[in-house]
Computed example of a mutant assay.
Amino acid sequence: MNVCGRYTLLAEELDILEAFGISNPIEEYQPRYNIAPGQNILAIVSDGQKKKADYLKWGLVPNWAKDPKIGYKMINARTESAADKPSFKRLMEQRRCLIVADSFYEWKRNGKEKQPLRISLQDRKLFAFAGLWDRWKVGDQELVTCTILTKEPNDFMSEIHNRMPVILPKDKELDWIEKEKKDPYEMRDFLLGLPDEALTAYEVSSYVNNAKNDGADCVLPLA
């Protein structure tokens, strides 16, 4: 199981627009209980003037890739090495995005079993993962895809998993997506130096294990 391989976005559209200062409506927005790799996910990019919310396919397909199936292996990128990797270096410079969420799932090993947990921020509902995006085009086939950056776990997450997604503090979101070209190592250090926000978690049922299950039962606390 990838780190940050599933998450939720249950907020109302208006709350998302307000939280992230977006003026364009989100086409065909639907709250989601079990967002999975390979699906279209809500991301925010900046053109230097304003922020725009749109759907990107989760699973990065670099613009030089021969086969778009590579995306299934690239749902996450390690922040520590992203500035060194051909797939991510150019994106760290100029193709950074926010991936909108309100909780994520992680599976904690419990003997031979893995117990799913729903993890969210203690003090605010909506947040953004740090993401990277790219555009792949061959003939008339085009994909705009993204990946979620991960890092070493904080004290809270280390009890659950050996990696965690990078969650941007509210006042650092614009710094991450501003349009200017940046040094990829500077952006790596920016992410690794972010303060940790307090997290909370509770156990949910194995219903969430199946990516086809996308209903309220996914987030019900385990009895």
Rank of each mutant, 00 (worst) to 15 (best):
N2P: 06
V3C: 05
R6F: 06
Y7P: 05
T8F: 10
A11H: 00
E13K: 11
L14P: 00
F20T: 07
F20W: 02
G21S: 12
I22Y: 00
P25N: 09
E28L: 03
P31A: 14
R32K: 15
Y33N: 06
N34V: 08
A36I: 10
A36S: 14
P37H: 06
I44E: 03
G48N: 05
G48H: 06
K50T: 14
K52H: 02
A53L: 03
Y55F: 15
L56V: 05
L60G: 00
L60I: 11
N63L: 09
W64A: 12
A65V: 09
A65Y: 07
A65Q: 11
K66M: 10
K66P: 00
I70P: 04
I70R: 07
Y72C: 03
Y72E: 04
I75C: 08
A77E: 11
T79G: 07
S81K: 13
S87A: 15
R90T: 15
Q94I: 07
Q94C: 09
Q94L: 11
R95F: 04
R95Y: 04
R96D: 00
R96S: 05
R96A: 08
C97M: 09
C97P: 01
V100P: 02
S103C: 15
S103R: 14
Y105E: 12
E106S: 13
E106D: 12
W107G: 09
K108W: 03
N110L: 12
G111P: 04
K114V: 14
K114Y: 15
L117N: 06
S120R: 03
Q122P: 02
R124Y: 02
R124N: 08
K125G: 12
L126F: 03
F129R: 12
A130L: 10
G131P: 00
L132P: 01
W133K: 12
R135T: 07
R135K: 07
D140F: 04
D140R: 10
E142T: 09
T145Q: 02
C146R: 06
L149F: 04
L149R: 03
P153R: 05
N154E: 09
D155Q: 11
F156I: 10
F156M: 14
M157F: 02
E159G: 04
H161L: 10
N162L: 12
I167T: 06
L168C: 07
L168M: 05
D171A: 08
K172H: 02
K172N: 00
E173R: 08
E173K: 03
E173N: 01
L174P: 07
L174E: 05
W176T: 09
K181F: 02
D183H: 02
P184S: 12
R188L: 10
D189I: 13
L191W: 06
L191K: 08
L192K: 13
L194C: 07
D196P: 06
D196N: 13
E197T: 06
A198W: 01
A198K: 10
S206F: 09
S206C: 11
Y207G: 05
Y207T: 13
V208A: 12
N209A: 15
K212F: 03
N213S: 04
N213T: 08
D214Q: 11
D214E: 08
G215W: 01
P221W: 00
